[in-house]
């Protein structure tokens, strides 16, 4: 249980770091404004005339594309810039505990942001009779999606002490994960690649896997997909940090 208490201590510090600086509040306000804007204005929530949150969840992959790397970019690059990495890794904890602690703290923060969107759920329930199971599945999918992006941001953050570079790199990687399964792109691909190739590429995309959640389907394969993206990116983070220390 020692490992867990170390992870908890790191989570606590990391979360505290969000809330003692304006980052947390700026992020929460912008996140809520944007989800509202996309759901009601761009997504035509009212004009659709259906009691569902499709117009809410559809935009999440795009919204997270910029917002999640903004949360994750400082995780490791800040430690390297301040020199606190040396302090952290000479304390009696393993690099894994630090990586997991930091990741969980940021994920928890994103979960909080997502939880604060509860008024849309109330709204849709007040206006009609939506399938709340589908909405729940949508939230689970959205949280996993955010976790996958976040893990990638962790990884790019460990690569550099420059937060801007870290941000741009993770946006690029996440954008690739979206586009690989984005309908206009897959349509383009089918024109000159055979369907098997197109499908293989699309199966790497977060879009393909996120769609099932939006339809209310909790498929193990989709959960495994997101979990393995998270696992892989965090593992890569560990390798990057170890290589940097080896010099």
């Amino acid at each position: 249980m020692n490992a867990w208490s170390n992870i908890k201590a790191i989570m606590k510090r990391e979360l505290g770091g969000y809330f003692t600086s304006p980052i947390a509040y700026v992020f929460l306000v912008i996140f809520l404004l944007l989800t509202g804007f996309f759901t009601f204005t761009v997504g035509n929530f009212f004009e659709r005339g259906e009691a569902s949150l499709v117009s809410f969840f559809t935009w999440h992959p795009w919204l997270y594309l910029f917002l999640v790397p903004a949360v994750g970019m400082r995780l490791w690059s800040e430690e390297r810039r301040l020199g606190t990495l040396e302090l952290l890794l000479t304390l009696p904890i393993t690099a894994w505990q630090a990586i997991v602690g930091k990741f969980l703290a940021s994920w928890l923060f994103l979960a909080l942001a997502l939880a604060l969107t509860f008024p849309v759920v109330i709204t849709v329930n007040w206006l009609g009779q939506p399938d709340n199971g589908v909405i729940m599945a949508g939230y689970v999918g959205s949280l996993l999606l955010a976790g996958a992006y976040l893990a990638i941001s962790c990884m790019t953050s460990a690569m550099t002490r420059n937060q801007v570079i870290s941000f741009i790199l993770s946006v690029m990687i996440c954008l690739f994960l979206i586009l690989a399964g984005y309908t206009p792109v897959t349509d383009l691909l089918t024109r000159f690649a055979n369907p098997v190739v197109t499908q293989t590429i699309a199966s790497f995309s977060v879009m393909t896997h996120f769609e099932a959640f939006q339809r209310g389907v909790l498929d193990t394969r989709d959960v495994v997909f997101f979990a393995s993206v998270i696992g892989f990116a965090l593992f890569a983070t560990g390798v990057i940090i170890r290589n940097q220390r080896a010099g």
């Binding site: 505290g16 770091g17 003692t20 301040l82 020199g83 606190t84 040396e86 302090l87 000479t90």
Partner: peptide
């Protein structure tokens, strides 16, 4: 106990 060069610390704490 270790005091690294330049005495780093978490700026916002």
């Amino acid at each position: 106990g270790y005091l690294p060069e330049n005495a780093p610390g978490y700026a916002d704490m």
